[in-house]
């Protein structure tokens, strides 16, 4: 498995798939990564950690005023109370949407996102078009994503970074007053927690 330097110089750049495999081999040979440990991380984010965690946080905030206050005052620790912590889970700040103020989150520089409560970001969140446009013309971007906001609703674009990862506390929809915390959870979508949708009451 040796390749001469000149071959490398003239060959086309290998695909990311091959580069990934090559890097994993090199790191495994050096004892720096353990593929079975990697498997666990990958499986955890593919199947366990996702927006369901964020939905549980919001449902609790909607039904427990004391928790709501803690969540808005100190997001990271209130979220940890429910057992959700981990990489990209530090410095989570929760902002509340109201009938007159709508928060929407973005990471203009890369893809900062509160992994422990939302899982890994969807492809559109990482897309250069969303990251650039939602700052310049949030109302148009939200409308394209199916959220038409009245002209008198103020839109605040929250730019995430390593210092702050934003999570939106959406409005509890009318008609859900009689639902329990457990019944509210399935209504709360990932998009509502990013701020590109509202939570809808069950039909």
């Amino acid at each position: 498995m040796t390749t001469s330097g000149s071959d490398v110089e003239t060959a086309p750049r290998p695909s990311p798939s091959l580069r990934t495999e090559a890097l994993e081999q090199l790191l495994t040979e050096r004892g720096l990564v353990d593929p079975s440990v990697m498997d666990k991380f990958i499986a955890n984010y593919e199947t366990n950690v996702g927006p369901l965690n964020g939905a549980k946080v919001v449902a609790k905030a909607w039904t427990d005023p004391e928790y709501r206050k803690r969540l808005l005052d100190e997001g990271t620790s209130a979220i940890k109370e429910l057992g959700f912590a981990g990489p990209q889970g530090e410095h989570i700040v929760v902002v509340e949407n109201t009938p007159t103020l709508h928060n929407v989150t973005v990471c203009t520089l890369c893809s900062c996102y509160p992994w422990p409560v939302l899982g890994l970001p969807p492809s559109w969140y990482k897309d250069p078009a969303y990251r650039a446009r939602v700052v310049r013309e949030p109302r148009a971007v939200l409308a394209e994503m199916g959220l038409d906001l009245a002209d008198d609703v103020e839109i605040v674009v929250r730019d995430s970074s390593s210092e702050v990862r934003w999570l939106v506390l959406p409005e509890r929809p009318a008609g859900t007053e009689d639902l329990t915390e457990e019944e509210l959870v399935p209504l709360i979508t990932r998009d509502a927690l990013v701020g590109v949708a509202k939570v809808q009451a069950p039909a």
Binding site: P16, S17, T20, E21, L23, E24, L27, L32, V33, D34, V37, M38, D39, F41, I42, Y45, E46, T47, N48, V49, G50, P51, L52, A55, P87, L118, G119, L120, P121, P122, S123, V185, P186, T189, R190
Partner: peptide, 30 residues
């Protein structure tokens, strides 16, 4: 019938994306 845990779309479009993600996270964890 639980709501989607994976954001309603594949977290990784191709297997190598998951490996690249897993490498960075496990290296950092170590």
């Amino acid at each position: 019938a639980a709501p989607p845990r994976s954001n309603g779309e594949l977290v990784f479009a191709e297997p190598w994306e998951g490996r690249a993600f897993g490498m960075a996270v496990s290296l950092h964890d170590a």
